[in-house]
């Protein structure tokens, strides 16, 4: 059994959980919701083991000195989906809003599918620039932040659907898909809670990145596209935080800012590497 096979299993697990969560929206069966949640936990547990196994494998390749498996695009995408589950399960433990799963699991599933089907999973030892503990701190904090934003984005989409439907059929209580969702107030609160977790983590991610750059190159900030995009993301979520406490900006506009913020996050993570030039090496 190698880590690649386990990751395939994880992908299947997340796929099934996602389908069941969507089934839950349609059927409102609490059995299905429980099953979906159990599968999500199971997938997360297997993924945790698989990441550990890959870590072990980095020591086994010829000439490999071993490294935390966070150093190339494949490893980072896998880690991203792991962090999405981590943040989602934490929020599930606390708030038990099962319908949220249908809007968050797709992100984790898509990430795993992409990693398993399209990305190069070769283990190659680290080039000098990446041989630093800062890499580990930087990647972990950034991706935990990104994952919280993914959850917030899913919740914001739910929020927009919810208030869209409620405005249309103003007095009759919304049924079906929308009826099972938490109230707009709870969704708004969840959105904020997720960003409340994500924002300090993103700040830490930017700071550890700056500290690393300073340690490796002697400049903590050089306006390279990746750095700049992470700052753009940070600006957007700072705007979100202030929008919530400003009259006229709360609710809908805040939800839209959260979605725009996640789009910018994804661009920062992937778009910059695939489309723009810069120092960060995941793209290659």
């Amino acid at each position: 059994m190698n880590s690649g096979q386990l990751f395939n299993l994880v992908t299947i697990g997340y796929f099934s959980a996602m389908v069941l969560f969507i089934g839950y929206l349609a059927t409102r069966s609490s059995v299905i919701a429980t099953l979906a949640t159990v599968l999500a936990y199971l997938g997360f547990a297997i993924q945790t083991v698989a990441i550990g196994l890959r870590w072990y494998e980095t020591y086994q390749v010829p000439g490999g000195a071993g490294y935390a498996p966070l150093s190339n695009l494949y490893e980072s995408v896998v880690f991203f989906s792991w962090t999405i589950l981590l943040i989602y399960l934490l929020i599930d433990l606390k708030y038990k809003q099962r319908s949220v799963g249908a809007f968050v699991l797709p992100f984790a599933f898509l990430a795993m599918t992409w990693a398993q089907l399209r990305l190069d999973s070769t283990i190659s030892p680290l080039v000098p620039a990446l041989q630093s503990n800062w890499l580990t701190y930087h990647v972990i904090t950034c991706f935990l932040g990104y994952a919280a934003f993914a959850v917030a984005c899913g919740v914001s989409i739910m929020y927009l659907i919810k208030i869209g439907k409620e405005n249309k059929s103003s007095d009759a209580p919304a049924g079906g898909l929308v009826g099972i969702m938490p109230s707009a107030k709870i969704l708004d609160d969840l959105n904020y809670k997720a960003i409340m977790i994500g924002f300090p983590l993103l700040s830490l991610g930017i700071i550890t990145g700056a500290a690393w750059a300073n340690y490796a190159w002697g400049t903590y900030w050089s306006w390279d596209p990746k750095e700049t995009w992470s700052l753009i993301v940070w600006f957007i979520y700072a705007a979100f935080l202030h929008a919530r406490i400003t009259r006229g900006w709360a609710g809908r506009k805040a939800a839209i800012l959260s979605i725009v913020g996640f789009a910018a996050t994804i661009f920062c993570y992937l778009g910059v590497n695939l489309l723009l030039a810069g120092l960060h090496s995941y793209g290659a």
Partner: peptide, 9 residues
């Protein structure tokens, strides 16, 4: 504040 944050972004 919101204006300048979005403008900077």
């Amino acid at each position: 504040t919101i204006f300048s944050l979005i403008a900077l972004a």
